[in-house]
Amino acid sequence: MEGEIQSIPDIAKHDARPKVSGIEDLIYGSLAGMMGKFVEYPFDTVKVRLQTSESQVFSGTIDCLKQTWQNEGFRGFYRGLTSPLVGAMAENALAFYAYNRIQTAIRKIADTPNEADLSLPQLFASGGLSGTLCAFVISPVELVKCKLQVENVQGYGSPNASTATKVRFTGPISVVAHLLRTQGIAGIYKGITPTVARETVGVGFWFGAYELVCRRLLQLKQRRVAQDGGQPRKLAKDDLGPAGIVLAGGCAGITYNLTSYPIDVVKSFIQTADVRQPSANAQAVQERPGILSTVRTVYSRGGIPAFYRGLGITLIRAFPANAAMFMTYEYLSRLSAELRK
């Protein structure tokens, strides 16, 4: 089907959008990440708490929402936001920057003209490599986020009401200070291996799904243009309206989570081991839980379904959050192009 677009004559050829510069990728990507994080964070808090808490703490998504509201109010859903907000801005800036620069490198290696579309496998590869780079930025940020999201929920349901609100960390800086004091630099990167695996797989499918849906929508639009007797021309993403970008971005977010969620569960378990077991001795706290031992621990809590606990609310938040991210990036890029014209 992809050939249907590429074989169209260049009559009334669409004016190509000026190429987005590296600086613009960084700026637009960071703003897109900020927008998406504000939308998704309350859902992410519930997801992480469901992933890492014992089954007797929360019976499910609704119970987690209810207990978080009762114990912490509205602010509880945004606990630990500062670190991931900065991280989301940095991650998305790097993701879009690396994704577009890697595509440029692939074009040079494959001797592909700039105006020609890359194949979907090439786009998946570009996304996967950009995800690998992003992992080293996002891993320390997610470590701090997960600890702040989880540390105060283990006492929920305790007869002693004060247990639920007793916390060790006051914010991101206190978490970082504690890690550096007790574990050194290595402590900041606890969980880096599953984070690299998750981002490489997830971001590859994230960008790949987005590009795939955009191409399918453009093919449908091209057929309508031909049926209406319009002049044939090659369509580009700029020809997609807000509904198309929202659909493609939302599908990208869902695909990311469906493909990487079990890895994310393992990552969250490793990063929250010490706050979930605060009574452990100092040596045990400093030890890094192994990936295989963590997989066995998660499996012992409910078999395969345990690797998907919290997936429902994650998919609910994935569509609007990722739609907001791609909408922000696409329309800022279009605005920039129009201003330059």
Rank of each mutant, 00 (worst) to 15 (best):
L65P: 00
L65E: 00
K66L: 09
Q67V: 00
Q67Y: 00
T68W: 01
T68D: 00
W69V: 02
Q70A: 09
Q70T: 04
Q70P: 01
E72W: 10
E72I: 05
G73V: 00
G73M: 01
G73A: 01
F74N: 03
F74Q: 02
F74L: 06
F74V: 06
R75W: 15
R75P: 04
G76M: 00
G76E: 01
F77C: 02
Y78M: 04
R79S: 07
R79F: 08
G80P: 09
T82N: 08
T82E: 12
S83P: 06
S83G: 05
S83R: 10
P84F: 02
L85M: 15
L85I: 07
L85R: 07
L85G: 14
L85Y: 15
G87K: 08
A90D: 10
A90N: 13
E91M: 08
E91T: 07
E91L: 07
E91V: 00
E91R: 07
A93D: 09
L94P: 14
L94Q: 12
A98M: 12
Y99A: 13
Y99R: 07
Y99K: 05
N100T: 09
R101G: 05
R101T: 07
I102Q: 01
I102S: 02
I102L: 08
I102T: 03
I102F: 15
I102R: 03
I102A: 02
Q103C: 03
Q103P: 00
T104E: 13
T104Q: 11
T104H: 10
A105C: 08
A105N: 05
I106L: 05
I106Q: 08
R107P: 02
I109V: 08
A110V: 04
P113N: 03
P113Y: 02
P113H: 04
P113F: 03
N114G: 14
N114L: 12
A116H: 12
A116F: 10
D117E: 06
D117W: 03
L118E: 01
L118V: 01
L120E: 04
Q122Y: 03
Q122T: 11
Q122A: 11
L123I: 13
F124M: 09
G127C: 05
G127R: 05
G127D: 04
G127E: 02
G127H: 07
G127T: 01
G127I: 02
G128C: 13
L129A: 14
L129F: 11
L129W: 11
L129Y: 12
S130K: 15
S130H: 12
T132S: 08
T132G: 13
L133C: 08
L133Q: 09
F136R: 06
F136W: 14
F136V: 12
V137I: 14
I138P: 06
I138M: 14
I138F: 15
S139N: 12
